[in-house]
């Protein structure tokens, strides 16, 4: 492979890199755009309720909203801390 070829390949990757970055970004921004507006509030209140019983971190709870043609799914995921003493 000549030096010229090497430069050609590194150039060829800049557009494909742009495409890849955009695809990820756009998919992410679209999914958050389609979320119902109550989602952040719901997440906050759920966290408050759960914290009454279990000591979990802010980032230990995730609320995901997914939508396809036929149904909408609300997924709630809570990661419990290790060695949590039972309080109830």
């Amino acid at each position: 492979m000549s030096l010229l070829d090497y430069f050609r390949i590194s150039k060829a990757s800049s557009a494909s890199l742009a495409k890849e970055r955009l695809q990820i970004l756009v998919a992410h921004e679209r999914s958050s755009r389609n979320q119902p507006s109550y989602l952040p509030q719901l997440q906050k209140e759920l966290l408050e309720v759960i914290r009454k019983y279990i000591n979990v971190d802010q980032d230990a709870i995730s609320v995901n909203f997914e939508q396809n043609d036929t149904q909408e799914t609300l997924e709630l995921n809570i990661v419990l801390p290790d060695h949590q003493p039972k309080t109830f």
Binding site: R8, K11, S13, S14, A15, A18, K19, L22, Q23, V26
Partner: peptide
Amino acid sequence: RVKLGEMLSVDDVQEIL
């Protein structure tokens, strides 16, 4: 520049948007 891989192609942009 598209041919050189330096610019997003029409197809790329259409695929994304």
